[in-house]
Design a protein around this nucleic acid. Structure first.
Lengths: 179, 179
DNA sequence: AGATGACATGTCAATCCTGACACGTCTTGG
DNA sequence: CCAAGACGTGTCAGGATTGACATGTCATCT
């Protein structure tokens, strides 16, 4: 149940509304965890009922701002320090690579080219974020460390896609070309 | 609905039973996609009813071997060539890094050390697999390309964890140390 | 002969997650 | 003034996934 803890962790930084949280999942947290508002609002209600967060403000258009409680802070720290991460992987783009041999060679190359392009573009966006001025508060520093993982990840996969393309060869397998 | 296509893709290589498929998800496909037998058996029944696979043999202990049909092969190819991968990310270990600032500094360093160790160990296992003799059939070549992504991924994350540890510094943030 | 463990298939309740539906407000630009 | 778009919260049906339960077979070792 990581969504629960993701919400607690985000609210540990500052009070936010469900709408704010939805935008965080769509932007800075998109590389790490995703959730739609239809999942977030009910979960906020459950966290509120459990006393882990509480509503601290009401704004225009029915806006409800929530803050983490002491119990919530204790719970997110317990989760961080006493449980191990779930390592389950589900990556559809790799699944497709596993089945590359089922594709027509030209389509397979198209796919890998698309992968390189995708990761190269993402890398560019991440590098831009990393090069822009950032705060030095602890949360921002953690976000920067996470972003660094994203940058290295995207660079690695873009390079890998280029390697895979060379590995496949121009027209079926070819040998003698160094990696 | 990627499980459906994962099963079709695996059965495109050779006929297998639900038990065989479960083992594949637990071993060679674990880095790419995961599924339990409780999800696999019902999905095989649905694929059979849809005519995308058919039972080709019955073995001891109620074993049922399935093979892909022409319709199934058409469907998996259609999926590969006409649809785009779902890029949704949910990585709990990164989520925890995002919240590193909530941990006691010593615990945060423990976590990153654990991450480096985990990825380094996984890298070792993948490299061992990569160095052992492999077949040259198309499916094995695709698997090798996928494995290469895994190797580079694990190496990148192990190195990143080491970098993050240095970035945090021995006792709170420290500057002037090159990356 | 009996125990152990791999082999083998299945169901089911509960939870997670998505996409669609539903409703209403505030601000800004034409 | 009004349209568009952002702001804002919520529900619900259906599919995906898990973990527990359930059942039985076959080979191997002691």
């Amino acid at each position: 149940m990581s969504l629960r803890h993701a919400l607690l962790g985000l609210l540990a930084e500052r009070p936010m509304s469900g709408y704010d949280l939805t935008k965080v999942f769509d932007s800075s947290l998109a590389y790490v965890w995703s959730a739609k508002h239809s999942q977030i609002y009910p979960e906020l209600a459950r966290l509120r009922d459990a006393g882990l967060i509480r509503q601290v403000a009401a704004g225009a258009r029915g806006r409800k701002e929530y803050a983490i409680t002491d119990a919530g802070l204790t719970e997110v720290r317990r989760w961080l320090q006493e449980t191990s991460p779930d390592r389950t992987v589900r990556d559809e783009s790799f699944l497709r690579v596993f089945f590359l041999w089922l594709m027509e060679p030209a389509k397979a190359r198209d796919y890998l080219r698309g992968e390189e392009e995708y990761h190269r573009a993402k890398l560019g966006r991440y590098e831009e974020i990393a090069s822009s001025p950032a705060s030095e508060d602890p949360a921002s520093r953690s976000a920067r460390i996470t972003l660094e993982a994203g940058i290295r990840h995207e660079r690695t996969l873009a390079d890998w896609a280029a390697w895979a393309l060379r590995h496949l060869g121009g027209r079926g397998p070819r040998r003698g070309v160094p990696d």
